[in-house]
């Protein structure tokens, strides 16, 4: 569904990504892991259009994403959350989701000018849809609260609800479990499995290995901007290069990578 072909990204002289190729299937949970600074979030920024690749092609359902504005990419069906949470803190949870849902119910450009039954009906159905999404992430009872008052874990779940409101086919989650306690993580894992079951493809960046290994069907590993391994969780866990990337090499061999 989503393919990255020989993607490179440089910031000035700094090569953040080199020759990264990935194919995300229509269904399933795909993990992207790697040490800090490996370039994982840069991959997300390239997919969602916030950055343009220095080389290579990104395609979604055969359509090239390069050069498209971020909002166009979202409308094609790719939604994301952020590593450093970016909810609208001074809006209620409901409004947060409504911002994203607004595009769906297309009620016409100037219909807001006059109060009408049709407009009210649209607004009612939008609010109902937003509440349903909040319920899906277990935040229905806090719908009217200001988003800034939520706990860290709740804010991450709100971000997921908001991303779902754009009706995505592919959901990118950037460290969804960061800052969550064990129980919250367990709950989030169950929610993610449910999302996948509902027909969504997910691409997840996460540092928590138990979370990643327990959830993902396939995992790609980035280290210093290059893919060093890709495969099923069991294979990744046993991969020598991956172990070295995370733990350092055993000291007997040469220090140089390449």
């Amino acid at each position: 569904m989503l393919t990255l072909s020989s993607i490179a990204k440089n910031f000035g002289g700094l090569q953040v990504l080199q020759d990264v190729s990935l194919a995300i299937p229509e269904r399933g949970i795909f993990g992207l892991i790697g040490p800090n600074g490996a370039g994982k979030t840069t991959v997300f920024n390239l997919i969602s259009g916030l950055l343009a690749p220095s080389a290579g092609v990104i395609e979604f359902h055969g359509q090239a994403l390069t050069g498209l504005a971020p909002h166009r990419i979202t409308r094609l069906g790719i939604a994301r959350t952020f590593q450093n949470i970016r909810i609208f803190k001074e809006m209620s949870l409901l409004e947060n989701v409504l911002v994203a849902i607004g595009r769906q119910g297309n009620s016409g450009a100037v219909s807001f000018l006059l109060p009408s039954a049709k407009l009210r009906a649209t607004q009612r159905s939008e609010r109902a849809a937003a509440k349903e999404l909040l319920a899906r992430v277990g935040l229905a009872d806090k719908a009217e609260l200001l988003a800034g008052k939520l706990s860290y874990g709740e804010q991450r779940r709100l971000e997921i609800a908001r991303a779902l409101a754009t009706a995505p086919k592919l959901l990118l989650l950037d460290e969804p479990a960061a800052g969550m306690n064990g129980a919250e993580k367990q709950q989030l894992m169950e929610e993610i499995v449910k999302l996948e079951a509902s027909g969504l493809a997910l691409l997840i960046i996460e540092h928590d290995m138990r979370f990643v290994m327990g959830l993902c069907h396939e995992i790609a590993v980035l280290n210093f901007g290059q893919l060093i391994a890709q495969g099923a969780p069991a294979a990744i866990r046993a991969d020598r290069q991956v172990i070295e990337a995370y733990l350092g090499d055993d000291g007997d061999g040469e220090k140089s990578r390449s």
Binding site: H71, R75, R80, R86, F88, K89, V99, A100, T166
Partner: peptide, 20 residues
């Protein structure tokens, strides 16, 4: 609502599919 969202976080609003 979109204007308020843009004021709070432009990037997030754009990534909600809205033409900021």
């Amino acid at each position: 609502r979109t204007m308020v969202a843009i004021c709070q976080d432009e990037v997030a609003t754009e990534l909600m599919g809205l033409n900021v």
